[in-house]
């Protein structure tokens, strides 16, 4: 009983870590997807030169895609967004030219490459074309988020490992006691020629069963927990649907935990039988 309990604790932590990873990966991806480099052209830049730069940038291997927003589109978009704002509408009406520049929105495959792309633009774009390149603020935010996720991951892994170790020790001790209380029977099995596997088998199976039941209890306990914390998570990052993910992946989750639990169990019982079952 105690063995299954500790096993459940270890597996729950592992499961939480797995779900946390899915959550953060989705969240980071969602945020990264919103990030790009914006290249604002000078008002005087011709559309041809802007499109030529778009083509060059598109050919960079680090670049996922490039979106060209002409100054007219930018204006339309701007107007659309501030449809009800009278002040802005009046101000726009008073300007009889379009104040918004054309721009490129560049998305990289890897957020770490934005600096590289910015440097490339700095060096290779024709002089007098670019007004400014914005990317640096995003990068800091992403770096911080990544660091935070990394730290949490590492802590989760440490807790999982620690609990896994505790679970193995408890399983080991339980099996050791079982071997001790059956020592007469084991002695006679050896005497009458019971094979190695015949004698060890039941204890190894016991170890596997601890893992199996541990995984079963862990997954049953996780269902209501996912239910409870899901609304809070959705409020934080709308893209993270923990509950949906949990139910969609319940079998793989269970499978991983069972493998891990059974692995722990069988390793503990293997060591216990090796040490206490001299055949």
């Amino acid at each position: 009983m105690a063995t299954v309990l500790v096993m459940v604790l270890a597996l729950m932590t592992m499961q939480a870590l797995m779900l946390f990873n899915v959550g953060t990966t989705t969240a980071v991806a969602a945020i990264q997807d919103k990030i790009d480099i914006a290249v604002y052209f000078k008002r005087a830049a011709s559309e041809d030169s802007m499109l030529a730069l778009k083509k060059t940038v598109e050919r960079l291997p680090q670049v996922k895609n490039v979106e060209y927003v002409s100054s007219d589109e930018a204006l339309a978009d701007f107007k659309q967004r501030h449809l009800t704002d009278l002040t802005i509408n009046q101000a726009l009406a008073e300007l009889n030219q379009n104040p918004l520049p054309g721009s490129l929105n560049i998305k990289a495959n890897d957020p770490n490459d934005y600096a590289l792309i910015a440097a490339y633009l700095d060096k290779n774009a024709p002089a007098g074309l670019i007004e400014k390149v914005t990317y640096s603020q995003h990068k800091n935010a992403i770096d911080r988020l990544n660091k935070f996720v990394d730290t949490l991951n590492r802590m989760g892994l440490a807790v999982t490992l620690f609990l896994a170790f505790a679970a193995s020790l408890v399983a080991f001790n339980t099996i050791r006691l079982a071997i001790y209380s059956n020592r007469d029977e084991i002695g006679i099995m050896r005497l009458v020629g019971g094979s190695n596997m015949f004698i060890k088998g039941p204890y190894l199976v016991t170890g596997i069963m601890y893992g199996f039941f541990g995984a079963l209890v862990a997954i049953i306990l996780m269902a209501p927990i996912a239910n409870i914390i899901n609304p809070y998570l959705v409020r934080l990052v709308p893209e993270v649907q923990l509950e949906t993910y949990f139910y969609a992946h319940i079998f793989p989750l269970f499978g991983y935990m069972m493998l891990f639990g059974a692995g722990l169990g069988i390793i503990s019982s293997w060591i216990a039988t090796r040490r206490y079952l001299r055949v």
Binding site: I188, V192, N196, F198
Partner: peptide, 22 residues
């Protein structure tokens, strides 16, 4: 080796002073 040992022990019958019954 221990796997062969169990085969050997099936060819030997052993009786002890303390019977060793379950």
């Amino acid at each position: 080796r221990s796997t062969e040992m169990s085969q050997l022990r099936r060819q030997v019958g052993i009786v002890f002073q303390d019977f060793r019954l379950l």
